[in-house]
Design a protein around this nucleic acid. Structure first.
Lengths: 229, 229
DNA sequence: CCCGAGCTGTTTGTCATACAAATCGACTAT
DNA sequence: ATAGTCGATTTGTATGACAAACAGCTCGGG
């Protein structure tokens, strides 16, 4: 599934193309037709392909892809982490997270707050980059959970991918990986005090700061590339 | 797939439960194990279940469900179109659409505008409720498309479900089903003139109006229920 | 009495094969 | 020229068999 999914998402096969017939595809991937079909069925569920009897499996247009699917996002990141795509991930965060944190500040229960607080303390206590990353993800997930709207929470896969890409691109060191802790604290406090608009502003600042950091990394990356060339 | 998916989403089997083994399940559904396995694989991709060898297929917690999946949304609507769930759909629209229309007003191309305009004219020309519904969906899809962010466009399944549920609940008549046309016109004009904030406000008004209409329907439904009881 | 290692039964994961159903394209008869 | 039909191709489904992995039990040791 991953093999074929990546081929499609990376553009090796384009929308409109039809895949080879199942028998040959199965042979070329060294699996049985049964296993291949289960993979194709999942790709079909993700909106990447459509199988029709007598014709074959046709790659659908991007329009139909389930772009918010965790796998599809991961494949896109693996094949083309272009600036363009990262900008789109940032835009999604700008839409989702401020609205979500405002809702969370309005409706949070004591349990939700405890969850967010726990994640914050884990971020504060993090010793390694991996610990920090895990706690950071937990923080943003807890905020979405606190909205009480599971539809919003399902957008976590987007935030997860966005943060993951961010970490990958901005090669942070042990010295500075905690730089955004104060921003997170402001968000936490606004939720604690049930101040939706304060929370929204704090989250916007957090994302803006994160984006600025990303731009900086891009600048450094381009400079290195230029110097190397 | 739909049968088992509905059983899970409707709560007939709860998170933590394990499904019967594949052989008996296949027999009870009158299909082969092959076909059943393809269905389970898709449900697994949607995050509803997790299969482990030697144990069986366990229903995952709602936390892991891919709630934005078109099928999952449809199953929820089919089994429990409660006020609570409709409110969550409305909240999603309140988050997504104003932000999306603002982005669309900023970045739209001539082609995008033509698409939206075409949908608007179809709404204006609609003679039947079905025609109107199709054009309305096309309008909102075109707006998402105009953002140029395919991640945002993938949220169309949510808007689609929300509007579909809305139409189902509010049993509109031929006389009044076009009442929201002026709101759509304001949105269209703001996008044409590239006025992001005007567009945002217009979309907020459109959704608010739609929600008000929904509340009214609920009131009538409750009144009928009370009178009948 | 408690605990861990190994064994065994159960269930999913994969495979090979066969056939039914549906579709497309070419051919034929009107 | 066109409509209908036939056949080749490909997916959809079914069946039977075996490999792999896990849960719980049993048994031996401390």
């Amino acid at each position: 599934m991953h093999e074929i999914g990546q081929r499609i998402v990376s553009g090796k096969v384009k929308p409109g193309d039809v895949l080879p017939r199942e028998e040959t595809l199965a042979e070329s991937l060294q699996v049985s037709r049964t296993a291949l079909r289960e993979a194709l069925k999942v790709l079909s569920a993700k909106g990447l392909i459509e199988s029709r009897t007598g014709v074959g499996a046709r790659v659908l247009e991007k329009r139909h892809w389930n772009q918010l699917d965790a796998d599809v996002l991961a494949w896109r990141c693996a094949s083309m982490p272009t600036d363009d795509f990262v900008d789109k991930l940032v835009e999604m965060r700008e839409v989702i997270e401020p609205a979500a944190v405002a809702a969370a500040a309005r409706r949070r229960t004591a349990e939700h707050l405890a969850e967010i607080d726990s994640a914050y303390r884990a971020m504060d206590a993090a010793q390694t980059l991996d610990e920090w990353t895990a706690a950071d993800l937990q923080f943003h997930d807890a905020v979405l959970h606190a909205t009480g709207n599971e539809l919003l929470q399902s957008l976590f896969s987007v935030i997860e991918t966005a943060l993951g890409t961010f970490f990958a691109l901005s090669a942070r060191t042990a010295a500075n990986f905690k730089y955004s802790l104060p921003h997170h604290q402001k968000v936490l406090e606004a939720i604690r005090r049930r101040q939706p608009e304060v929370a929204r502003k704090a989250m916007q600042a957090l994302i803006a700061d994160s984006q600025a950091n990303l731009q900086q990394s891009r600048g450094r990356a381009r400079a290195r590339k230029k110097a190397g060339a």
